[in-house]
Amino acid sequence: MSTERNVLDPLEIAETWYRGGRKVALATVIETWGSAPRPVGSHLVIDDEGNFQGSVSGGCVEGAVIAEAMEIIETGAPKILEFGVADETAWRVGLSCGGRIRVYVERIEG
């Protein structure tokens, strides 16, 4: 019933940023295994200057997602990223909880 919209909502922010002329990518958790900090469907929105809002983990892999997203903003080709303790990259960026996640990153178009 409240008409006030959440100012920290990633999808609202994505629309606002895009409308404001920024290039925007949207990252979404599409699969999780084991204990994962954010549920499937969680969003992170990134612009071409590396500004971001929302989360796909508890801060563990956001840095890597943002770096990939900035490339996707340039190329326009969506990508599925996977992070988990078994993988070298993830070990560095660290999903300390021991879970594994897949994140879909796409550019806002049109």
Binding site: L11, E12, A14, E15, Y18, L26, E106, R107, I108, E109, G110
Partner: peptide
């Protein structure tokens, strides 16, 4: 994702 899709979700 198309901008129109994002707008439809938010609407």
């Amino acid at each position: 994702m198309e901008r129109s899709t994002l707008q439809a979700i938010n609407a």
